[in-house]
Design a protein around this nucleic acid. Sequence first.
DNA 1: ATTTGGATCGGT
DNA 2: CCGATCCAAATT
Length: 195
Amino acid sequence: MRLPRSFYARTSLAVAPDLLGLHLVHRDGATLQIGRIVETEAYMGPEDLAAHSAGGRRTARTEVMFGPPGHAYVYLIYGFWNCLNVVASPAGVPHAVLLRAVEPVANIASGTWGPGLLCRAMGIDRTLNAIDLRGDVLWIERPRGNGPAVRIGTSARIGVEYAGEWARRPWRFFDRDSPFLSSCSAAARRRAGIA
DNA sequence: ATTTGGATCGGT
DNA sequence: CCGATCCAAATT
């Protein structure tokens, strides 16, 4: 079942931990690529200096965050990595949740730890920017039976040192039991038996 | 028109 | 730490 619009119509701080354990699904032609979300970060809009929408900055790139919740915000970073965000909060409040890692569930070939690799592995790029997450191309759903309970860990967000005190807020959320986190070293993954 | 720096990653 | 490699935003 796709998540209802109301799920997304809350602050990114509320949405980010609730996304853990849910399934991100991308329809690529006839195949469904599925990943279990295990790491997210909340970006809290105008007052959050780490957010692209800090200060209410409204540009062609950030525009989708000002629209209705439950849409995708996909942007290119460092020249070649795509990053996927979920737009949160009612229209006019530019909140977003960055999806940082998933665990492969179906039809995923390469690594999914870290926001750039996640997009590469699931075939997500800027052509999907602004797409409605209640459509039939990209969506998030609750797995059958809700899946196992998630033990949630938190930390400061990654790669936002420029944001001063905002960088230190514990707005990164992850499944403590997942070996597929972006902060896990390659060695740790090998120990866990993952390519 | 030009410049600058970025919500990354893997290898060293 | 470095390099790969490019777009958006701010500045001239």
